[in-house]
Structure formats: structure tokens, C-alpha cells
Design a protein around this nucleic acid. Sequence first.
DNA 1: CCAAAAGTGTTCGAAATACACCCATGC
DNA 2: GCATGGGTGTATTTCGAACACTTTTGG
Lengths: 240, 240
Amino acid sequence: MSENSGGRRPADPAAVTVDLVIFTIRGDELRVLLVERGNAPYRGRLALPGGYVRPGEGLDEAARRELAEETGLDGRLHLEQLRAYGDPDRDPRGRVVTVAYLAFGPDLPVPVAGSDARAARWEAVEPLVSGTTPLAFDHADILRDALERARARLEYTTVAAAFCAEPFTVADLRKVYEVVWGAPLDPSNFRRKVTRAEGFLEPTGGRRVPEAGRPAALYRRGPAKALSPPLLRSGDQVSR
Amino acid sequence: MSENSGGRRPADPAAVTVDLVIFTIRGDELRVLLVERGNAPYRGRLALPGGYVRPGEGLDEAARRELAEETGLDGRLHLEQLRAYGDPDRDPRGRVVTVAYLAFGPDLPVPVAGSDARAARWEAVEPLVSGTTPLAFDHADILRDALERARARLEYTTVAAAFCAEPFTVADLRKVYEVVWGAPLDPSNFRRKVTRAEGFLEPTGGRRVPEAGRPAALYRRGPAKALSPPLLRSGDQVSR
DNA sequence: CCAAAAGTGTTCGAAATACACCCATGC
DNA sequence: GCATGGGTGTATTTCGAACACTTTTGG
């Protein structure tokens, strides 16, 4: 930042928080971790997990800490910043600027109570973004932005694999895309694309025998972050 | 945001600022608006324009105000949030969280002094991101992120047109892509793509006579925001 | 042998690249 | 006319969607 207009203008004191949109896939649908608020404002309402950034703590650091507190899983989940939200009246208690983070993880055991006694649970995303279920603060907006970002990230990056517990099959990975995009994909073509993408998947050599059908090869996440060519979802490659 | 652990934890008081990465194209290169700092810290060093978010002001609102103050152009430029930066020691004066914004505009008359007496000027981006010229605070990081974001935005959105003063020609628009991506494009194929993209360009009916050659048709920006199919820069469509 | 899911091959059409070619203007 | 850039046509190639087909397991 820079000081303004030569002289110092008193900074509007603000509280800074991080809020987490933690997505996972469970029961063939996309879910997000929400907590029930125990205090005013919005007491009893569902909200994104989050908390104040502590003194001496960076934003990413605070998000990582909150993530560990909420899920119990330390460094496993993919975490990235979504954006900042700072409407002056987004919190009735005063100026609170929040930096929202987006996390992806495999179907987690169950939200641990952790150091935090609040009731946390996985909620299906779809009804929440449709606007029927109300969330605390501007968290519905944040969730909508997060979903849109997640959908886009699947196209151009390899983060989809972060939704899968290792080792996983190509079908597991395909389910991630289908659930997040909400559209079925052609298994053959999907497999070709992801296996050809350099550094996306690394074969473990193992196989998984399903309830029925031929065993599937197992993979772990490869080193690649970006995905080129991208897996586009725009009409093409979606089975009709 | 949500309160933490049931009880209230004192929020780390933070100053919140917005910083602007304002890009334009001038002299066949990408440039960014920088100001010379008049006060400590980093006195005399170049920095991104920005300032404190005022009481009762939203983040977007603050960014829009700063943009108007710096450039004199009110609502003309495209403006979008980049991300927040909040390393605890990014500002030696204390905790300052900044929200960076990205703006695109046509070759602007010249940085007006505006209400602000600081010396502002357009600097070429390339030497700055190469890391040779030092910037104040973490502004070099912000600039690098902004450049990467801008390059990506050109692929999937119509923001490139925001760099062109209306009315403009297809060649003007192509120059934007070439300068931002740093690679020459095939004029014929480029024209086909952008003219076919629904809602990208609207013909004005006018023509512009160049110094030499056939007059070019003039266009204004169309209503479309997203660009599908995207204009990919990955190897393809770049003349070799 | 049948069902079911994994995985391969093949065809067909759309789209992109590369480039030849024509157009409209100033000199 | 000629140089210069705007703009169109088009052959070739590449790539992806669709889908038939083969493989490997359990019952």
C-alpha cells in the first residue's frame, strides 16, 4: 500500500478474518463444511468456518491454521485464496474484512470437533447456492464465488485430484468432474485426456477390484499443477 | 467471518488499503502506473498507487475512488479485484492488509496530478517483473501476479477491448494481445476469431484511414464478457 | 456364460493453422 | 503503378466427440 495524499490519513481500524470454503465429495454430491453459529449475530445460522487473523500471522498462515483446526487434517488439503470481501456493513458489529479461502479435500472421515466445540457438518452445496437456505453474513455470496472458481479450476489445473484419497482410479477422478460440473462425461475420452496430460497422474502399479467389473488401475497425484491442454466443459466433451 | 472458539478473541487491529495495478499499452509495450513515494518507508521508491479504505466504504468502492483520483477517468476503466496480501511484515509500520485491484485502460492522456500531488508515471512492465527495478513493499509480487492474471484474462474474457479507446480496429485489438502475451499473432486468424465471437465487437460502420494501406473497419466493445471459445495462447495460434 | 466396469480403436466432423490471394487507400 | 496494411478464401492437419469393441473380473 502507499500512504495517501502526502499526509497520513487515519486508517479505518478493521478486523481481519479468514473464512474457509472447504469442498469435498460425498454421496455423489458436492458438499461444503459449515458450522452452526453459537453467538450473535446470526446465532443458530449456518456459516463458513473461519476466524480472526492473529497478530504476526500471515493470511495464508491463518487459513492453514483454521483448516487444521476445523478438519484435523494438517497439510493435506489443497488451499488457495479466493478473494477479499469488505462491504462496510457485511458484519453488523463493525468493519470486518474477510479473506476467503478455497480448500479441496477427499471425503473426510467426519468433521472433528477439534479444539473447537462448534457443531460442524457437511452440507450439500446445491441447495445453498440456489438461495433457499440462508447463510450467515455474506457467506452465500462467498460460496457462490467459490463454486464458480472451483469449476473453473478443474478445467485448467490438476486440483481435481485433491478431491481423491490416494490411491485413486480414473473413475474416481471422473466422478469429481461430474459432480462439480454437474454433467456426465464420456469415460473413454476422459481417461484419454487425463492419462495423456503430462504429470497429472502417476500409476502406482496397483489395481482395485470393484464390486462388479474389471479391476481399475490405481494412480497417485503427479507433480503437474497446470493442465494443458485444458479440459473444457463448454458444451463439448459433455455427453448429451 | 465467524467468531472463533465460542468466545471473542480480540481482533488484531489492521489497516486496510487498496492498491491498484493499472495497465495500459503505450509505445508498443505494456506499462503500469506507478507513483514515487514521498514519505518513509521506501521514500523515493516507486510504488503502486493506492490508499486507505475509508470508513463506510466498500473495497470495490475504495478502488474505484482511487482509480478516479489517479487517472482522472471516472468509470471508464475495467476494474477487478486481484487478491489480498497480508504478510505480517509487508509494511514496517505495522499490520497492513492490502487488497490489490487490476485495471485496464486505453493509452491514457498522461497521469494527471489530480487531487494528488505525487509524481505518477507509466513504467514499462517488463523490467519491473524481471526483478531488476526494486519496488516498494511487496509491490513487485503484486505486479507479477497482476501480469499473470491479465494474460489469463485475455484468453477467456473480452477485457482486451478495455485497452482500446473506442472506436478501435481489429489491428488495435490484436496489438493488445501481442503486447500482453509477448508474441506475434496471425492477423487473418485473429480477425476471424474475434469477429466470430458473439458480442465481442460491434461494428460502428466507420473506417479509419491509416498512414499507409487500406482503411480498417471500426468497432466498439460489445456486451459479451466471457469469450467462448477462448483464445488460447498455448503454442497454438501463435505464429512461429 | 452373463453382467459390469475398465480400457482401446476407429470414424467422423469441427476447428485451427498456414498461407495464398484480393481489396482499398496514399503516394 | 506500387507499397502497405486490411480483409477473405481455402487446403491441410489436428483434435475432440461419439461409439463400437475388447478385456478382465465376479457370480
